[in-house]
Amino acid sequence: MLSPAVLLLVITSVYPFFWLFRYVLYDYNGFVAYFTGTYNIKRAFTDAVFWKSVLHTFEYAIGKLILIIPISLGLAVFISRNLPGSNTFRIIFFLPTVISASVYSLIFTFIFAVFRGPLNTVLEAMNLITRPIDWLGDPKWVMKSIIVVAVWGGLGNYMIYFISGLSSISEEIYESCMIDGANGTQTFFKITLPMLSPILKVILLLAITTAFKDYQSILVLTNGGPDGRSHVMFSYIYNLIFAAFSSPQIGYATVLSVLAALIIGVITAGYLYLARKLDDVF
């Protein structure tokens, strides 16, 4: 029964991986491969830009997760109450999910424009800043700006997951709580959150792996700049293969891809180990 699926997996995933893996020892530009021995591997361990990009990946992923999970959960709880206008808000919050990351990132480049840009104009009018901020060009601000865009683009998706999780909790349990005199905060922390645990485990797994693999918005917003400050692992690897201004370094990019996959694999395994408890909550 599983053989078609296994075959597809081998053809589309396993084979390409090993096909590419053979170029680890080559300088390969897509046409011609020049044997370089272990140079690519040695280079990977001394490549300061890559290791900085690893740190940036963690900064980005942690920043995104800290914001996106609570906000999407809060929105899901709010919308699940079926207050007037809930459906409209559900659509509004979900809309960014159906827009291409490249498109909304491009829109944000205009919002973040320094000179008379909409965001700076509003903040200056509210006397919150005295001079325009270079949101995408200032190393202090660039990662925060990128995280805001990522949260805006992704929260609708997680909100829908949470709504589906919330809908599986029986109304009778909430009615019992009300009869027992529990307030909203108690109900949320003692009933809603524990009962969401199984789906929370899946959502967190998806959110973590997605956050560590994100790079499309970054390519549009900053392409890793300024001075590599917003390069994450995959934006750096992408540039090694598809950079417009130099020949592709597919062999070296393969080494980095394997390292990146290992890093994400370790994090995912670590999360699954720590998250075992979430299965036992309910």
Partner: peptide, 21 residues
Amino acid sequence: MFPGSNTQGVDAMRAQFANGT
């Protein structure tokens, strides 16, 4: 140096020049 020009696309900067900024 025009603020933010380092991160704006070529057409955005052409538009700024055409606006006299």
